[in-house]
Simulated assay, not measured.
Amino acid sequence: MSQPFVVHINPVAFSLGPVQVHWYGLMYLLGFFFVALLGEYRRQKGRLPVSREALGDLFFYGMLGVIIGGRLWYMLFYYEGGIHWIWTQPLALFKVWDGGMSFHGGLLGVLAAALWWSRRHRLHFFDTMDFVAPLVPLGLGLGRLGNFINGELWGKPTSLSWGMIFPSAHADDVAYAGSDPALLQQLQSYGGLIRHPSELYELALEGLAMFIVIWLVSSRPRPRYLVSGLFALMYGVFRFAVEFVRVPDPQLGYLFGTHWVTMGQMQSLPLIVIGVWLLALSRNAPTLRLYTAALPDKGTDEE
């Protein structure tokens, strides 16, 4: 077997004096950039009757929702010290440079921001979400690329030819190998166990595949709820499936004494159910008409 690829990439993209700019942060910025770019394109196609200024407000509040919701959800459900941080070290919530963001929390943050914005502009909440859903997958994919560059959220050991070595998983490699002669030989030969690049699986599924499918489906007017339902269903199924080959968060492990149920799977099940429910609702829902011309940059759509 040829030497597997070793995921040992400098997480720092470049430095500006004492300030280090990390690839992970750049991935977030690129994600927000593509959301804004694609959103403005859809707005100009008449997919939502708002001005550029109003759409910019939606993206700004959505960005806050991603950051605040994603960080808070991580601290509540994934933080190594449990929820004791609330009264022992509350400032840990703001230490985003230590890592720790949750997609499910970020999604809830976006939903809250979109609900408030939709009411302010007298739009149906799901018309807003059907507009936003096709914009999100590229950002998700870039986030997973950032995870890969950081060498984190790695997968389980595999014998597949595209498996990779994650040096940051060395302690887990040693524990997993135990006294197994074949795995010990692998450790000695390659310096680590060959693992599934689960971040790249998620990049391909949650990022590229979801973007292509949802963008194509939403390329013409669809019944209300359909695009949002498709997004929820696809993400839930993809995330649930990839969790089978991804190592669970070490501070949580597997749930309920099983060897396969993870927190990620538990939090993805509601998305699958909601996705199916929304798709069912769409069968009798109205279709948002295309607006013949986008509103000007500064419209009068404020209350």
Rank of each mutant, 00 (worst) to 15 (best):
P134Q: 14
V21D: 03
G81Q: 10
V261Y: 01
G109T: 12
L37F: 15
H124D: 15
R220Q: 11
F60I: 15
A169R: 06
N147P: 07
G62K: 01
N150I: 03
R42P: 04
T158V: 02
V227F: 06
A204R: 03
M27C: 14
G105T: 04
Q44H: 14
R43M: 06
L288Y: 12
A36T: 08
F148S: 09
I86M: 14
K156P: 00
Y74V: 03
S159G: 13
F240H: 03
S219V: 02
R71T: 00
P167S: 03
Y235K: 12
V7C: 09
R283P: 05
S159D: 14
G31H: 12
G192Q: 11
I214Y: 10
W117S: 01
R52K: 12
I165P: 05
E302Y: 15
L111M: 13
L37Y: 15
E199A: 14
S282L: 03
K95D: 07
F33E: 01
Q44E: 14
W162I: 08
M101C: 10
G139K: 04
P157C: 08
V242G: 07
L184T: 09
Q44F: 10
E202T: 08
G207D: 10
V247K: 14
I214E: 08
S282E: 01
L295K: 12
V7E: 06
R246H: 05
T292G: 15
L111N: 03
L16P: 10
W154C: 02
Y291E: 08
G264W: 06
G31R: 11
P221F: 06
K156S: 11
V273N: 00
G31V: 08
L252A: 02
L123Y: 07
L29A: 15
R119W: 11
A171R: 03
F32R: 10
Y74I: 04
P181S: 09
R120S: 09
R47H: 07
L205F: 09
F59W: 13
Y225N: 05
S161I: 12
M234H: 12
A232K: 02
R222D: 00
G65Y: 13
Y61A: 04
P197R: 05
L295P: 02
E152T: 01
V19K: 04
